[in-house]
Design a protein around this nucleic acid. Structure first.
Lengths: 351, 351
DNA sequence: ATCAAGCATGTTATCGGTATCATTACAAGT
DNA sequence: ACTTGTAATGATACCGATAACATGCTTGAT
């Protein structure tokens, strides 16, 4: 560890510059309030002492930390990483710093993180998902700061929301496969009885199932196995389960492109031709879905945009001076797109 | 925004429990110091008031924030995300919170981030890379906190280091391709004359080139084009440039699997057979490299382990009581592995 | 009975800033 | 000349915790 010289404080700067602490503070916070000559003196003193302001003290005094807490399922999912980067990008001009936490798809972990984060007194909380533990909900409500739930459209939003309907995504997927003439249709998701569950993935499955039912089809081929987060392996394994249950399955929707890719590889291994023998689609529009051979049909959501929109929303909400009215809770739906590529095709039976 | 009830302070808790602030503080920080009966009283008061301690105030008072700054090129690279997650995982038991910043491969941005982060008074800094601006170097030196440079092996470490030699990675790649009998050997990297440059990628190219030279080969097929971070497109485009320059190229090393995948797809499109017509290898062992058809030969580094090792190192360094000697600066080399898959094969000319 | 040691708790003094109000000086309006 | 306004700066009082030291009370060894 390098040697530590005692750090200069604002007081040191003010003495060297021959002004009061308050003037130094003004030079840093709002230079226009200070005359040019004083400002120059202060700047020189700051330079000389290599003064770095202490935002910890500043935050305590001003009751604003400029921290934004972002709670995501995991960082190692490019979609969530995109959202985080989009959010950080949008907030940076206003000098906000992200406090990122990840839950590993566990609600208890989310609660733990929220509790820990609140002690840091963030100016706002962004949280992926709309389902939280009771305690988590209460803590966020009580925090008295803007809350933004992202990556889904909550029925009962805590405050603001930016996302899309996972349920509708599932419906769109099912409608696409039905529209191709398939009747034996399955889906691949993760288990819901474990600690780590993908609630948004489950919403997609629910929407998917609803369409199947409406079409008079059964939902027995909707497979739920393995823990979130899903993996290539998950796709391969669950496809195996599905094929055992229904060797004649014609079309499959995986709750994530990652699973879809794994399923596709499993098809390669088993000599199942995609899309001739089996239509396959995923969700997320991950890079790999586009690069696969054949390229995978998927549903695209603009993850980075969710982050950016959230950031823009927060800037509006946070910029308000304390006396103006609170901005009403808002819900932004960023939508999604069905991207038809090469892994889904018209049912042979129909041709 | 939900209504804000004025938050309870430690003082409120102490009054309700009929003890002093200090006792409340002790219950939270070191419960064993307090008798069971008092502890219970305090806990009940905390519960009743939904008290959430203010770590901003605590940090100011104790001069410890329990923040660790982590500076990475980007979050949207699964390798760096893995490192961040490994680091966070290792530090969590000790209740450290990561402050993540990303530089987009720009040194000036790194400097800006370091300056901003130091104002948050982190207890340590973790930074990817060993090359920094002069000002950044000085700031880190002066900060008086542990610094860990990761993802490379610095010649002149600021303090600690955890990584591997990118130069040696490049050499290993070149030796592998040479060992297969190839003589017309190229490489794909990014430009070094732009703001955003991948210095570690450049080290790999340098190591790669050094082997070519030693073998009496020229380095004219080492292509540098496009800005960091590289993309699938980058691989496709730079391979095009390379093929134009040398249609007879036999083997290619891409500084990233991402580029390698892009190059592989370009080969598909051009009808170039891999590895029969061209041997191709990448770096990073990204999931996609394994899942590709054919699976890509690559060099694996355990990114998550770099994060974990860094975390463990920091825990050691930070746990020392102030009076013990500083732990000497250390350098951990986590090494790398050559993973031979299906995109590299013996030169036909040699067969 | 005496006293040192130790446990449980309290008191006081910061930590390094910012909010708020006060003050000074000077220019402009009447 | 007298108020009034405004620009520039200063003085004071916190913000909500913890460090460090002080105190009172047991307890057990001698």
């Amino acid at each position: 560890m390098p040697p530590s010289s005692p750090k200069a404080t604002m007081h040191d700067v003010s003495r060297l510059a021959g002004v009061s602490k308050m003037t130094v503070s003004r030079v840093l916070a709002d230079p226009d309030l200070v005359s040019e000559s004083t400002r120059n003196k202060v700047m020189k003193a700051i330079e000389q002492l290599s003064y770095v302001p202490d935002r910890v003290a500043g935050s305590l005094s001003s009751r604003r930390t400029n921290f934004i807490t972002a709670i995501l399922p995991t960082l190692t999912n490019s979609n969530f990483a995109d959202t985080a980067q989009g959010l950080a990008e949008a907030m940076r001009p206003a000098d906000y710093q992200l406090l990122i936490g990840y839950t590993m798809y566990r609600l208890e972990e989310e609660e733990r993180i929220i509790r820990a984060m609140l002690a840091r007194r963030p100016d706002a909380i962004v949280v992926a998902g709309t389902t939280h533990t009771k305690a988590a909900n209460e803590m966020m409500l009580r925090a008295g700061i803007p809350i933004v739930e992202i990556w889904d459209t909550p029925e009962h939003p805590i405050d603001h929301a930016v996302g899309f309907s996972n349920y509708e995504v599932g419906r769109a997927a099912a409608l696409h496969l039905l529209g191709l003439g398939h009747r034996r249709i399955g889906a691949l998701g993760s288990r819901m009885d474990s600690d780590a569950k993908d609630l948004r993935g489950e919403s997609r499955l629910a929407g998917f199932t609803s369409v199947l039912r409406e079409a008079g089809l059964s939902d027995e081929l909707v497979i739920r196995a393995g823990e979130a987060p899903v993996s290539y392996d998950h796709g391969a394994v669950t496809l195996g389960i599905l094929l055992e249950r229904a060797p004649d399955v014609e079309a499959v929707f995986a709750v994530s492109d990652i699973s879809a890719v794994g399923a596709l590889m499993e098809c390669h291994r088993r000599g199942i031709k995609v899309p001739d023998d089996l239509s396959l689609m995923g969700f997320g529009d991950f890079d790999i879905a586009r690069q696969c051979v054949p390229a995978i049909t998927t549903i695209r959501i603009d993850a980075e945009r969710i982050g950016r929109k959230t950031g823009e929303l927060l800037l509006q909400v946070l910029d308000r001076s304390p006396d103006t009215e609170h901005l009403p809770a808002s819900a932004v739906n960023v939508g999604f797109d069905l991207v038809i590529r090469q892994t889904t095709a018209t049912s042979k039976k129909r041709r």
